[in-house]
Amino acid sequence: MIDLRSDTLTHPTPAMRRAMAEAEVGDDVFGEDPTVRALEEETAALLGREAALYVPSGHMANQLGLYVATRSGEEVWAHEHHHLIGDEQGATAVLARVLPRMYSGEPFPRQELLESWIAGVGDVHRADPALVWLENTFSGQVLPLAEQRRVTDFAHAHGLRAHLDGARLWNAAVHLGVSPAEVAAGFDSVSVCFSKGLGAPVGSALVGDTDTVRRARRGRKLLGAGMRQAGIIAAGALHALRHHRERLVEDHERAARLAERLEGLPGVSVEARTNMVLLTTPEGRAGRYLEAIAAEGVRAIGGGARVRLVLRQEITDSDVEDAAKAITRAAASV
């Protein structure tokens, strides 16, 4: 079975396992784990920020970013398909207790939409906005940095903060040929993931200024995620950060190759986005395609009209060729 459901499925490499086994550790709740501290300091430096906080998951990094930037009853502006909205169990309402105001279509809000939303501020009937949310990459799609800057500049000009869900920020940086700090520029807080494309077994980070991270650290403890000798898992993330960022281009190249092999599938459009290939099928038929693809030995995820295939470190050139043949056979059977 060739498993293309997600890049989170990657196993630690032998070198990563050695780093984890040999990690120097301490009590991180007391700030005394040297490996965690090294990971946080290197992450903050790469993203051009003062500080970073290591957390167990991207979900938590996002929720802490929301928690420290808002007060109960305020608004966060986000896309209807952002991870924050559709994949975090409604935690915006449960934890930070804020109201999402959502837009659709393109992965960033148009200027006229922002202007119309900000025009209503001060109306006693509506929630006050506090935070603008972006995601890069967005379902594998890289956002233009000029659009990010436009949105963050607007937010700051009107007294709002801006957060970037950068779970796959590393992929965006490689695709654009820029530093991670350039992708993160302009945001008050940024979340990044170590367990997706970078292939570490556990963890994400929230970065920002010193006060933002201090408050997020208290929030992490509030949620019961104070970790003790966490250097064992942080070592895997640190190894990934130091050794696996540049190789992401290989995943992008394999995704492009897989998309090329799948061009021409009857009734299906094919698009490569960084390390993902998206198949758009007739509406409502993604489930049938997923079943047929699985029967041919390839695992994927999707719903509605879309099937998603994700390339990662353990997927080889041979796997790409075999997957392309299997998916072609599956599409013919559907």
Rank of each mutant, 00 (worst) to 15 (best):
H79L: 09
V307N: 09
T328P: 01
H156N: 08
M60R: 06
E32I: 04
V183Y: 09
A305Y: 02
A38K: 10
G267Y: 12
I2R: 11
A181G: 14
T210Q: 09
L278M: 14
G177D: 00
S72L: 01
V76L: 14
V142K: 05
N136M: 04
L169A: 12
V121W: 10
A230G: 11
R261Y: 01
K325I: 07
G73L: 03
V76D: 06
G236W: 14
S269I: 01
V190D: 05
R101V: 14
I327Y: 08
G226D: 12
Y67H: 11
V178S: 06
A19R: 12
R261I: 13
E263Q: 15
V36E: 06
S204F: 10
Q141H: 12
R101S: 11
E246D: 13
R49P: 01
G177P: 00
E291W: 07
A240S: 13
V213S: 01
A15Y: 03
P109S: 11
A167S: 12
V298G: 02
S57Y: 02
Q89I: 01
S189M: 01
E112R: 13
L145E: 02
Q148R: 11
T281L: 14
G86T: 08
G26Q: 15
C193M: 06
R37S: 12
D27R: 02
T316R: 06
Y103R: 04
A330S: 10
L278W: 10
R18V: 12
P129G: 04
H175P: 00
V202F: 14
G208D: 09
R218T: 09
P14R: 03
A146H: 10
E283C: 00
L206Y: 02
I232N: 00
R312I: 04
H79T: 11
G264T: 02
E32Y: 02
E41P: 00
F108A: 15
G186P: 02
V124L: 13
R110E: 15
I327H: 10
V307G: 05
A305T: 00
A324F: 09
A146D: 15
L222W: 12
S269Q: 08
R228C: 00
A61L: 11
D87K: 12
V142Y: 10
D211K: 11
R261S: 15
C193S: 14
S191P: 03
E253D: 07
V207Y: 05
L99T: 10
E291D: 15
L279D: 05
D27T: 02
G177A: 00
